[in-house]
């Protein structure tokens, strides 16, 4: 199968990497070339970032790298050394939910919830760039995030609600 034959098949020496995740320095010792997604999930016990497709098509693994959204499945651990990484676990500050999280709760904007972390972080990244996005901008921006339960109408409502909350608080 393609994803297997593409792997390196020779033994690889582990290296140490210093990562900055959710404001904390985390050091991992691992072979180079592993994806950020797997290092988060397997080495750092940060499982809020999900595997969905492995090819950057579904957005379930969305994280923020220096405030920009990125697919953790497409980044290697070396590529994010020294970068500031935010995962869903780091979004709520001191137990205070981020407005996007609040909005998702208020709108009940999930069914199975497996896409939710990626949806929320994508929306947070959108607001970094455009505090007042139009409907078309929201749809275009979010189109890389798949919800298989197809809760899209509620997710859009949650994002609009979050925009309103952010506007009021700023």
């Amino acid at each position: 199968m393609s994803q297997i034959s593409a792997e390196v098949t020779s033994f690889v020496t582990p290296q140490s990497y210093e990562l900055l995740i959710n404001g904390q320095r985390r050091s991992v010792r691992t072979e180079p070339g592993r994806s950020l997604l797997e290092v988060l999930r397997e080495d750092l016990d940060l499982t809020g970032t999900k595997y969905g497709c492995g090819e950057g098509q579904c957005g379930a693994c969305t994280v923020l790298v220096n405030g920009q959204r990125a697919h953790a499945c497409k980044l290697t651990v070396q590529e994010v050394i020294g970068q500031s990484i935010l995962t869903i676990e780091g979004l709520a500050a001191d137990g205070q939910l981020h407005p996007v999280q609040e909005a998702f709760l208020a709108e009940q904007a999930f069914q199975c919830g497996y896409c939710t972390a990626g949806m929320i972080l994508s929306a947070v990244a959108l607001f970094h760039q455009r505090p007042n996005p139009t409907e078309a901008e929201i749809v275009q921006w979010m189109n890389g995030n798949v919800c298989r339960c197809c809760g899209y109408p509620r997710i859009l409502r949650a994002i609009r609600r979050a925009a309103e909350m952010l506007r009021k608080s700023s």
């Binding site: 499982t47 809020g48 979004l91 998702f104 009940q108």
Partner: peptide
């Protein structure tokens, strides 16, 4: 319209799906 009881764990990434168990 009772919401899903573990909704907060979902939006904070704390909820452990089967693939998240360690």
């Amino acid at each position: 319209s009772l919401p899903r009881p573990n909704a907060r764990e979902v939006v904070t990434g704390q909820y452990r799906y089967p693939s998240d168990l360690r």
